[in-house]
């Protein structure tokens, strides 16, 4: 079947770059090209002894965790409102919140740079990146959480209230457990986006770079490339683990709500 053959070829195209990562990460040579020179774990060792990298990783983690939490909280509000009774202009409001999804990231970066540095005269730092990352993660959170809320029968909460719970009690006891998997996958997805985001971070990072900005710096030094490969290998492994958890949670959520699986994250 030609279509299946094409699909497999396409998957190879998708995975080709990632497959090369570990190969060069363990290659005992500074030039990133075939033929391979032999096996080494030296590049991973170098990662451990580079304080600048550790600093960058720390920055990235702070940014990613904060962005994920804030974006998910805001996303819960928006997604829940999205399922509720409509009012004039609601589509426009939600559309505007979703706008960063189709806005070139450089526009977000530039506009925040102008306001923070030029207009307000504040120094750049991790917080400026967090502000921007929340903005670009929010649409993804809303998309994921919409799925979680949409699978929810509206009369569930009413039933809880009918059985004596307050509005908040109904949300906590019924809605929250049912959308919990969606929340987890929203957190993980924003975390992953933020951790990997470069275009905005490059514009908005202050004196201490985030991990992608640090990697960008390394790419200019050929002798550092194997280290980048080693770092990339770890990141890919980490992403796969996080995404697998996110996907498992999403499926569990569907099962819990008694729904059929219909698709992926978006």
């Amino acid at each position: 079947m030609t279509l299946r053959f094409y699909a497999v070829a396409y998957l190879i195209f998708l995975y080709a770059p990632i497959a090369l990562l570990p190969i060069f990460a363990f290659n005992d040579g500074t030039i990133i090209a075939f033929p391979l020179q032999g096996f080494t774990t030296q590049w991973f060792g170098e990662l451990r002894t580079t304080p600048a990298l550790h600093e960058a990783v720390k920055n990235s983690l702070i940014i990613a965790v904060s962005s994920a939490v804030i974006a998910t909280l805001l996303g819960i509000c928006a997604a829940r409102a999205g399922q509720m009774e409509t009012f004039p202009g609601k589509g426009g409001v939600i559309g505007f919140i979703m706008l960063p999804l189709v806005l070139p990231e450089i526009i977000v970066a530039v506009s925040l740079l102008v306001v923070i540095v030029r207009v307000m005269g504040l120094p750049l730092g991790n917080w400026t990146i967090i502000l921007a990352h929340v903005l670009i993660c929010m649409p993804f959170c809303i998309a994921v959480l919409n799925g979680a809320f949409a699978g929810l029968d509206k009369s569930m909460e009413e039933a809880a209230m009918d059985l004596g719970q307050s509005r908040w009690g109904a949300f906590r006891l019924v809605t929250l457990p049912l959308i919990a998997p969606g929340i987890v996958s929203s957190l993980l997805i924003s975390f992953t986006i933020s951790l990997d985001e470069f275009i905005i971070a490059f514009f908005l990072s202050g004196n201490s770079p985030t991990m992608p900005v640090y990697i960008w710096g390394l790419l200019r030094f050929p002798e550092k490339l194997p280290v980048v490969m080693a770092l990339g290998t770890i990141l890919v492994a980490l992403s796969i683990v996080l995404l697998t958890i996110a996907e498992t949670m999403r499926r569990r959520g569907l099962r819990r709500a008694g729904l059929k699986d219909t698709g992926g994250f978006l």
Partner: peptide
């Protein structure tokens, strides 16, 4: 109330 969809908590 007995809801039309029954609203049985699935969790």
């Amino acid at each position: 109330m007995v809801f039309q969809s029954y609203a049985i908590f699935p969790h």
